[in-house]
Design a protein around this nucleic acid. Structure first.
Lengths: 237, 237
DNA sequence: CCCCGAGTTTACAGGGATTTACAACACCCG
DNA sequence: CGGGTGTTGTAAATCCCTGTAAACTCGGGG
């Protein structure tokens, strides 16, 4: 057994993955996701920058060669609005781009084709040195409801609410977005770890049980509300 | 080290260059020297480490393949005595060494043959970002749990916890990501040194033993929690 | 050659998670 | 209004993941 146990922090860091090769992206996304990363993908520069602005990922992975405006351009623009680390993907042997990228402030590059495993290792290497523990609060309170993520615990008026694993995941998401509608899609992906499919009723079933474990609102309605065709919402008082 | 600004050569940073290929070393040394680096060279591991100890360079460049003890070994020993950044030189396509090296904490990789210009650019890129790198702490504490990575030791309230090798690796990962979910994938790769496969139960078994070696949380739950389909999480109190 | 310890694999139990089924709704039309 | 269609609530059945003890494997001593 090799004792490879150097410190690798950051499970669940978010990654924005930009490449026009759909197949490759899918492969990488799946692997990174299974490795604990939170992955968003884009296939060209335009949407990449929009997603970047919207999601503020912890790190971006950008292909140098893309239709529309190039990876170098994406890099430049990301750089112009902050210090989010960027890893560039280059064609093997394309020394010019690599050097240019590095000089423009890319934090690393990986030659394609690369193994998902290598990409993951490098992302962690970069995050290890750049990520200053992002500000995840110890607790979030919504009225009398308190969420302690690091303890995997949720309490109502100081009393622990007894939740199963999936129930906790889902309620956590609702609390983190309290008052807003959370799509089934998101609930499924973040909470159950798989894409949502049309006839999948798991979420409804779980939310039904959670509903029974939370006290009703003053007006007698349950605290968790289905929003037809849109998702679910945690009501605040 | 002086200068922090982007793209500006780090004047007079010192580099230790280790490679058995005398010709290549000469070429690189001259180029790096003309680029403002202060270069020392060694042709095998033994003298490399001696020079490293004597000169405390700002950065080391080490060939993976060398007679005597290998570059990986040199990397390991440099790592064991501090956090000086290390850039590894590998044969093109030697993915295994690259990944192994990254996991052991190499800061970067360059495939041989490389242009002196590229090497120089990468050295500067590393130096630029390591200027602000936080040094790895001697110990990490999560409540009463203390991790001493360099000593391969974990203690609970001052008492050593008796752990086997694999158990230590896994618990170390959980502590370094305390409060976050760590995927089985990561645990397997970093902790056991092999990719995770679907029906592999080793991790579950190891974590089960660890669980029994740690005291319970105040609320009676075990400190290590499975998160369905995602991985495991060390709960904080 | 046997024993020992660590790691892995196997086996099985129990409890969640998911699926199924059906009733109750909401919404969209004419 | 009143089907028709699609969605949600929930109990019940089924499935599958994790916890854990125990068997197995493999190297190193003695």
């Amino acid at each position: 057994m090799p004792e490879i146990a150097n410190n690798i922090p950051t499970a669940s860091a978010s990654v924005l993955l930009v490449d026009d090769d759909v197949e490759l992206v899918t492969l990488l996304r799946d692997y990174l996701a299974s490795d604990g990363f939170n992955v968003t993908v884009a296939h060209e520069g335009e949407s990449a920058l929009r997603l970047f602005a919207a999601q503020a990922p912890d790190i971006a992975v950008v292909d140098v060669m893309m239709p529309g405006f190039s990876g170098i351009e994406v890099l430049r623009r990301i750089r112009s609005r902050g210090s989010t680390p960027v890893l560039m993907l280059t064609a093997r042997g394309d020394d010019e781009s690599r050097i240019l990228g590095l000089e423009l402030g890319a934090d690393d590059y990986v030659a394609k084709p690369c193994t998902p495993r290598e990409l993951s290792a490098r992302l962690r290497a970069i995050l290890r040195r750049t990520l200053v523990r992002s500000t995840t609060p110890d607790s979030v309170c919504i009225g009398d409801l308190a969420l302690y993520s690091a303890q995997r615990r949720i309490a109502w008026a100081g009393q622990d609410v007894q939740l199963t694993n999936a129930e906790f995941n889902l309620l956590e998401l609702l609390i983190q977005n309290a008052g807003q509608v959370v799509s089934k899609n998101l609930l499924s992906e973040q909470g159950l770890g798989r894409p949502f499919q049309r006839y999948d009723r798991s979420i409804d079933v779980h939310l039904s049980s959670i509903r029974h474990k939370l006290p009703l609102l003053p007006d007698g309605r349950p605290r968790i509300q289905a929003v037809l065709r849109k998702g679910y919402q945690l009501l605040t008082d």
